[in-house]
Amino acid sequence: MSTSASTGIARRRAILRRGVIATLVVVCLAIFTGYFRESSDGPLHDAQGAAASVVAPVQEVATRALEPFRDAWGWATSLRDARDRAAALEAEVEELRGRAVFDAVREQRLAELEATLGVEPLLDTERRLGGYEPVTGRVIARSFTDWYRSARVSVGAGDGVVRNSPVVAGTQRGAALVGVVTSVSGSQADVAFITDGRTEVGAGIPEAGNFQGLVQSISPGQLRLSGVPRAAPVKALQSVVTAGWARGRLKSIYPPGIPIGQVTSVGGQEVDVQQTVQVTPYVDPRTRSYLTVLVPTSPEAKERAAG
């Protein structure tokens, strides 16, 4: 019984709701129809104007009250967008920096490898004086002292390298002497630079006559040519090259004619019988990632390497 009564009440409520909704729809349609059909000074238009005048102040107050919240939302949105753009730009900058570093390293290595081509003209000359073959290796270790005395290259006995093989590096001027091989293993070789204070090289200045002396490092990165008589017309910017002779008439382990450096200053006292010739080497070993070993191939070159 209670179930039937509940069901009847629910049905009447549903019918009532539907009737109310239908009535409201009909009333709204009638109002809209009458509103659009009447003139602008009709009662419905007047009612709309009155309602608008009542609601307008409330709407204005609500708009002003919500304006700070709307501005805050806009600021938060713009801040988030700005952060996103900044993060994207930072990522792009890092990518460009990485590319720039990669390109710089690649260009440097390419320039050094291209510079090794300058060894060939030197060897064309040296073949008439004894005969050497170039073997280029990558620098895999180096000393980190002020004298930057030595380095280790990735070529060794398996490539024909022997002790006392001259070592050169390509420059814009061509190949220039940087040192000599002091020890060799199967795949590696140690190189002593001419900027090591313990290395001596027999040298001369072709533009100043056939006077010969010894080149030795006196300070990090600088050389001094000693033994040149005061009468020799030595001037700044003249080239210093290997002489092909050691002390006395003994053959040097370096063949003649390999460029070493450039005269930067000439000095000495009036009572001195020899000049003090300062020389700047053509090659700074610290800047090289590749060095070329001149491997002796002819009997004369092998005799020089034997010492």
Rank of each mutant, 00 (worst) to 15 (best):
R149A: 15
E114P: 00
R152K: 11
G49D: 14
A141M: 02
S2V: 13
E207L: 09
V105F: 00
I140L: 09
A157V: 02
L24Y: 01
L214T: 15
G307E: 12
Q275D: 02
D146E: 13
S226E: 07
G49L: 13
A203T: 07
R17G: 05
R249E: 15
R224M: 08
P229S: 04
I260Q: 05
I21S: 08
E114C: 00
R18Q: 04
V93G: 00
A30K: 00
V178Y: 04
V178W: 04
T23L: 14
W75R: 15
R304L: 10
W75G: 03
D71Q: 15
E126C: 03
F32N: 04
V184C: 09
W147Q: 14
G213P: 12
R304F: 03
R128W: 06
N164C: 01
R70Y: 10
G131V: 06
V25C: 09
D272G: 08
S183A: 15
E38S: 08
K251I: 12
L16M: 07
P43Y: 08
W147V: 14
Y282H: 11
T199E: 13
P121S: 03
A169T: 09
S289Y: 00
L237A: 14
L66W: 11
G98N: 13
V167T: 10
V54C: 01
V263A: 07
V168M: 01
R247Y: 11
Q275V: 05
G197D: 13
A301F: 03
S143T: 15
G261R: 07
L117H: 09
G268W: 03
A104G: 04
L123I: 13
A232D: 10
G267T: 08
G42E: 02
E92M: 06
V139A: 06
L291I: 06
Y148V: 11
T23Q: 04
R127N: 12
E207K: 06
S219N: 02
G202I: 03
G213A: 04
T63R: 13
I31N: 00
R286D: 01
V240I: 12
D190C: 02
D41Q: 12
V167H: 04
G49V: 10
W245Q: 14
C28Q: 00
R127T: 14
I21T: 13
P299C: 02
V191A: 05
G197F: 08
T280G: 01
T136D: 04
G267P: 08
I31W: 07
V184Y: 05
I21W: 05
E120A: 14
I9M: 06
L291P: 12
F69S: 14
Q212Y: 07
C28P: 00
A301D: 07
G307A: 12
E38M: 04
D284W: 01
R18V: 08
L110W: 02
G213W: 09
V215L: 15
A175K: 12
L29T: 12
S143R: 11
V119W: 04
G118C: 09
R152C: 03
W245E: 13
E95F: 04
L129K: 11
P259V: 10
E270L: 14
V162P: 03
S217G: 14
S298C: 04
M1E: 11
G49Y: 05
A47S: 07
R64S: 15
V153N: 05
